[in-house]
């Protein structure tokens, strides 16, 4: 019977269809690829190129040597990574419970909460940074309220430090974190949770063994996204840090403005790009390991 079907011919046609489809998809993606090439690859290449020239215009490692020899650069990189990591931790701490809560609500009410998260997303970075200053400064709303209520004698140092910087950055990154987490949670079959509960698992156990592992891809994706974006923050640390939190983007800006040294600034940009790429690769590898290991377990 099967011999009657011209299987080979059919396969050729299928393969041709697949080829056409691929070509079409590529054609559709082409404008996007061109934009990426023009707006990302060429400027990045230019950055590498600039960083390779010393102040006198000759080809040299001068810019990288300056970074590796100056102790302050190491501290700036460490500060940048620490601030970013704290922002990720704050986002995970606030974002995961919030997303789980929103996920448990009926769709219409959940929509309202998602809108509440997205609303500040549409406000300018600058406005939000200054809004935090109004709240946090020595004679700001929070300190005034605390003193009036008799909870503290002297105003607390809330602004112009690490606390205010991480707070402001968390505020900005939270929507970016919550969206992929919520997406992952939405895809969890509620039947799984009910099944776990029906088999006698406590709420805590259900969360730990069923819900969070299933939401993990979204949490990891959100955390990586927040971390990488936080590394390049400028406006928020500049305003809310008050000069006491020196991150890499501020040094890049000052290299340009104070010294007009495009080479030095480019070298810092290249290093930040490389570190970010390395961390991103590590993060993705960890993600694959965690998820891959679990997939193996599922099949076993």
């Amino acid at each position: 019977m099967s011999a009657a079907l011209p299987l080979g011919e059919n396969q050729t046609e299928l393969a041709r269809d697949a080829r056409v489809e691929r070509a079409l998809a590529f054609a559709l993606a082409l404008p996007c690829l061109i934009v990426v090439a023009l707006c990302v690859l060429i400027p990045c290449g230019w950055l590498f190129y600039l960083s390779a020239f010393g102040n006198d215009g000759s080809l040299s490692w001068e810019n990288y040597e300056r970074v590796s020899s100056g102790a302050s650069y190491g501290r700036i990189f460490i500060t940048t990574f620490e601030v970013s990591l704290l922002t990720v931790l704050a986002c995970v701490g606030i974002g995961v419970p919030f997303a789980a809560f929103v996920n448990s609500l009926p769709p219409r009410v959940a929509g309202l909460f998602v809108a509440a998260v997205l609303l500040p997303f549409w406000t300018s970075l600058l406005v939000r940074a200054y809004a935090w200053l109004v709240l946090l400064q020595r004679n700001g709303l929070i300190n005034t309220a605390l003193i009036d209520m008799g909870l503290t004698e002297a105003p607390l140092d809330l602004a112009f430090n690490w606390f205010s910087t991480v707070l402001g950055m968390t505020h900005i990154m939270l929507p970016i974190f919550i969206l992929p987490v919520l997406g992952a949670m939405r895809n969890i079959d509620p039947g799984m949770i009910r099944a776990a509960a029906s088999m006698g698992a406590s709420w805590g156990l259900t969360m730990r063994r069923v819900f969070l592992p299933l939401a993990a891809p979204g949490i990891i994706a959100g955390a990586i996204l927040v971390f990488v974006m936080s590394l390049g923050f400028y406006v928020t640390p500049a305003i809310l840090g008050g000069g006491n939190v020196q991150v890499i983007s501020m040094r890049i800006a000052r290299s340009l403005s104070n010294f007009s040294n495009w080479g030095a600034a480019s070298a810092l940009g290249v290093l930040l790009l490389l570190f970010t790429g390395a961390l991103l690769a590590l993060g993705l590898m960890a993600q694959r390991l965690i998820l891959g290991a679990r997939k193996g377990q599922d099949h076993a």
Binding site: G70, A71, S72, R75, I76, T79, G243, Q246, R251, R254, N258
Partner: peptide, 8 residues
Amino acid sequence: MFEDMMTQ
């Protein structure tokens, strides 16, 4: 020198 002092 000032910047190095600031980041110390």
